[in-house]
Design a binder for these strands. Sequence first.
DNA 1: GTAATCCCTAGTAAATTGATAGGAATAATA
DNA 2: TATTATTCCTATCAATTTACTAGGGATTAC
Lengths: 137, 137
Amino acid sequence: MLSKKTKYGLKALTYIARSKDDMPVRVSVIAKSEQIPQKFLESILLTLRKAGILGSKKGKHGGYYLRNEPSEIKMTDVMRVLEGPIAMVPCVSLNYYEKCDDCPDENLCSVHKLMIQVRDNTLSVFRNTTLEDLSNE
Amino acid sequence: MLSKKTKYGLKALTYIARSKDDMPVRVSVIAKSEQIPQKFLESILLTLRKAGILGSKKGKHGGYYLRNEPSEIKMTDVMRVLEGPIAMVPCVSLNYYEKCDDCPDENLCSVHKLMIQVRDNTLSVFRNTTLEDLSNE
DNA sequence: GTAATCCCTAGTAAATTGATAGGAATAATA
DNA sequence: TATTATTCCTATCAATTTACTAGGGATTAC
C-alpha cells in the first residue's frame, strides 16, 4: 500500500507545480484544497525540503516552491524520499541493499528473482515520469 | 515492503514445487529447510490451502501439495492471496476498487495516473510468471 | 511590534506485522 | 484400540509503523 504520506506529498507537489505564478505556496492553501490535515502536511513538505526537492520561504508571504522545473523532478527521487526504497525487499534494492540472513544463495532464491523483475518494472515507470507528467491535466 | 508472510509463502511454494516425488510435504520439513518459524508457516500454508492453491493431507504422512501444475500457478493469484491487492491504492485496484473520499475526479488525480502505470507494470510481471519460473534453478 | 508563516520536537492512538501458545481433529500403523 | 504424527483452529501478544496532534520557536513582511 502507498502510505498517506506519499499520497499527500505527491498531491502537494502536483499542486505546487500547477500553480502558475512564482509566489511560494502556503501549506494552509494546499491543505485546504487537497483535503490534507495541515499539520501532517507541514511535516511532509518539511521532509521534501530537507531532501532538496522543495525550497521554502519563512514568515509572512512565505511558503514552499519547487527547487527545479517540474520536468526535472523525477519520480524515482520523490518516491525514495517519501516512500523509501523502491524495491520490495532489501536484497534487490539498488540504493539500500542488504543481504537476507536466511538466504544462502540469492541466485537460487525464487523471491529474489521475482522481486528483481518487479523492481525493474517499477523503476522504469518512476524513471520515465516527472512531476511535469503528473501535473498535466 | 514485501511482508514476511508473502516471502515465506513464496519460498514454501517453491520448495513444494521443487520436491520431485508426489508425497505431501510436511510443514516441519519446509520450515527447517527454509528457516521459517514453523507455527507461522503453518498459518501461511493454511491460507494458501483455503485459497485453493495448496491441498493437504492430515495425520501421519500428511502434508501439503500443489493443487495444480507449477506452470499453471500464476503469481497474480499467489500474490493476491498472500500480499493482498496488487495495486498500491484502492482507486486503481482491479479486484478491490474503492473510490478515494478526497478525490473529486480521478482523471485529474496525479497519484491515480502514476499508480495505474505502476499497477500495469507489476501486473504484467505477475501475469507472466508462474511457480514453474520461480522453481527453475 | 504584530500577524503570518515555516520549523522543530515530542507524543499518541490505532492498525498491522510477525509471530507464539495450546490444543482439537484426523489419519496411519503397531 | 492405542499411539504417534500430522494438519487445523482460535486466541493472544509484543514490536513496529502509520497517521496524525500539540505546542511552541524562529523568521519575515508590513
